[in-house]
Design a protein around this nucleic acid. Structure first.
Lengths: 209, 209
DNA sequence: GATCGCCAATTGGTATACCAAAACAGTCCC
DNA sequence: GGGACTGTTTTGGTATACCAATTGGCGATC
């Protein structure tokens, strides 16, 4: 299935900055570039529109959506809102032990990359860590809300601004531990604190509310 | 633009039950039925898939999504999660007075319809009341998450199960008052309590977590 | 020299045709 | 009689062709 591939490649091209914000997305050009026809390409674009990565006015050329400062604030808000709920759900779910195990693995791997100054790799692990929690809720709506808010996009921009490796590792381990031991309240509160703590250290962090 | 029209008609057909949950959506048939070709129809379907109204597995026939009991639980969870945040944002926003004014209007109108046993009308007002709060945040991601969770769809099913008119009116008025006076904490807490209170009175309410 | 208008090329929207894979049914074999 | 197989039909995926609207540039005119 070509559409899937094109969709992923397009999204990746946008995430990676190969297609820059504001850039026009001409269907025939892109179809050529991704070695497909206009139909799958249009359908890929449509998905990206519904996810907010691409803006499209009927009858006009689409273009890559830009993240304004307001957008960044919004994304932090969504993260603050959704992740604590997810943490609570996972902590009271039956899968919590296996999830926690995976989280610890990812925490270690990320710390390793951080110490080796492999920013891209560590960012991937961080993303994966939090995505794991979201997806472990088994709640499609929660997952969708998380992804459509572009939390992953924001996080992938934080490369190299993540602060002390050991501190972050410690927080992730504690986070995983609270999920493992099945204390929903504690996990939820810690998740909230963790997200706020990270945001506050960011240049464009979430000071509001 | 045909796709827009087909999209609206399809969505309406699903909301109204003309296309029933679980029903197969054969592209050629629907294209014929809506007097268009498969391309616009496919693109409409794709939008509905991204909105969760239609389920689609690549290579297979799509069908109308059904709301399982789990789905209903999930929707209540999303409402509990998103609406309090929205209430907080609105309460600390500069538009809070005009929003509150509109909310009071809707509360009154709804109470009127409830007393006249006009369930459909009152349900509309209720939906509008809560949608107003969500949209007043001016946060596209929050609005999207709310809509894509199908909170409106769930609420439109509550017709006739809304309990005492006066009680509901009272709650809505208090809700609006807290937003108007600009106390974010109070508004957020009240919103959370209100949603839970409603859910608990529903047959398929949100007892979990 | 500036502006208006027109023509051509670019581009998005739609229809149709073709293909491959999945669903189905009938048949044959056990 | 039941189950597996095969050929046909249905159906989704893709490519291409056509159309309409928009855009951009060139030239004529004031």
């Amino acid at each position: 299935m070509k559409q899937q591939r094109v969709y992923r490649e397009l999204r990746e091209a946008i995430y990676s900055g190969q297609l820059k914000p504001g850039q026009k997305l001409v269907e025939r050009q892109l179809a050529l570039k991704f070695a497909t026809s206009r139909v799958p390409l249009r359908e890929s674009l449509l998905r990206l529109v519904s996810e907010g990565l691409v803006r499209h006015t009927p009858g006009q050329t689409s273009f890559v959506e830009d993240l304004t400062a307001d957008d960044v604030q919004e994304i932090w808000l969504m993260r603050r809102t959704l992740e604590p709920v997810a943490a609570r759900l996972v902590a009271q779910g039956s899968q919590r032990r296996s999830v926690a195990k995976r989280l610890l693995l990812l925490a270690d791997r990320m710390a390793k990359y951080l110490r080796a100054d492999q920013d891209a790799r560590s960012a991937e692990c961080d993303l994966e860590f939090h995505r794991t929690i979201i997806e472990a809720t088994k709640s499609p709506r929660l997952v969708r809300a998380y992804e459509l808010s572009h939390v992953p996009m924001l996080m992938s921009r934080l490369t190299g601004e993540r602060g002390e490796p050991d501190l972050l590792w410690q927080q992730h381990v504690e986070y995983a531990r609270l999920i493992e031991q099945g204390t929903p309240d504690a996990a939820e509160q810690y998740a909230r604190w963790h997200v706020i703590e990270i945001a506050d250290r960011m240049p464009s962090g979430g000071q509001n509310s």
